[in-house]
């Protein structure tokens, strides 16, 4: 639970590749995935991104599969609703449950599969980014993208403190658990309330200390970052453009294909 994806990103060999290249690949995948009209292109993108993450990025395969399974739950509920209630074409499956008729129509199923595949491709793209690119590298990109200064500053500080507080929350939670703080429902409610308030008070004090520490080091509202210059190699460029071209070609040729 405490394992944040960032830990794996720090160890990934793809960490040392050009950030802009990785970001372009991810954005391309997201946009093509979400605008495709057949499930084939998103599945192709999902496959490519998974391969890159696991084979080139050395993410543990078991962890990767576990990660993919986790958010599928929400996607699945939504998809089931879409499959059952949208569409108007031919019925392919219908039954009655507790007096209510349920039926899956052909175009409803088509839409549900499309949405599921889009979700899957989006998740694979996101995981590619988060398993190969540590947040620290992305801050330099954010700076260069001219977003409001205060927003970036705030994100960097939040990023730093997430780790401090996660550690704190985990140790408090262990301490509460060994004292049977979560042994029944009422107790867990009060334990989690205590945990939250302690966290809140401690984080507030930490904020005060942080301000003092930064002020005494001449903080003037700007933190300068060092961006490592990483040229894109020809092989990478070639592979990326091959991937882009094949995805676009697939997108074009499967435009009107339906699989149901």
């Amino acid at each position: 639970m405490t394992n944040i994806l960032d830990d794996y990103a720090l160890m990934s060999p793809l960490r040392h590749k050009n950030n802009w290249l990785k970001l372009t690949i991810v954005l391309f995948g997201l946009l093509v995935g979400v605008s495709s009209t057949s499930p084939i292109t998103p599945l192709f993108i999902a496959l490519c991104m998974s391969f890159t993450t696991v084979a080139l990025g050395r993410a543990p395969l078991k962890l990767y599969l576990k990660l993919l399974l986790a958010p599928v739950g929400f996607a699945f509920t939504g998809v089931v609703i879409i499959a059952f209630f949208s569409g108007s074409g031919q019925e392919i499956l219908s039954f009655e449950l507790a007096g209510y008729p349920f039926s899956v129509k052909a175009d409803g199923l088509e839409l549900a599969l499309l949405v599921l595949s889009r979700s899957l491709s989006g998740m694979c793209c996101l995981y590619f980014l988060s398993l190969t690119t540590p947040m620290i590298e992305l801050f330099a990109v954010l700076k260069a993208s001219r977003l409001p200064e205060s927003l970036i500053e705030l994100s960097m500080l939040i990023y730093r403190y997430i780790f401090v507080f996660l550690d704190m929350a985990m140790s408090i939670k262990y301490a509460q658990t060994v004292r049977l703080g979560y042994s029944n429902f009422r107790r867990s409610l009060s334990s989690i309330g205590m945990l939250g308030s302690t966290l809140f008070i401690r984080s507030w004090e930490q904020g005060d200390k942080l301000f003092l520490a930064m002020n005494s080091r001449c903080y003037d509202g700007k933190m300068t970052l060092f961006e490592v210059n990483r040229p894109v190699r020809a092989v990478e460029l070639l592979l990326t453009s091959a991937y882009f071209l094949s995805a676009l070609a697939l997108f074009y040729f499967t435009k009107n294909i339906s699989i149901v």
Binding site: M1, S150, E153, L154, L157, I158, R160, Y161, I162, V164, F165, L166, A169, K173, Y182, F185, S188, L189, I192, L195, G196, L199, F200, S203, W204, Q206, G207, D208, L210, F211, M214, G221
Partner: peptide, 25 residues
């Protein structure tokens, strides 16, 4: 000016709180 670090820890607090699992009925 002292509000920025406070906002930052508040943001981190939201993140950590949302990653804690609530006991659910």
């Amino acid at each position: 000016r002292e509000i920025l670090p406070l906002l930052a820890v508040a943001g981190a607090f939201i993140f950590v709180l949302s990653s804690l699992k609530l006991p659910s009925v």
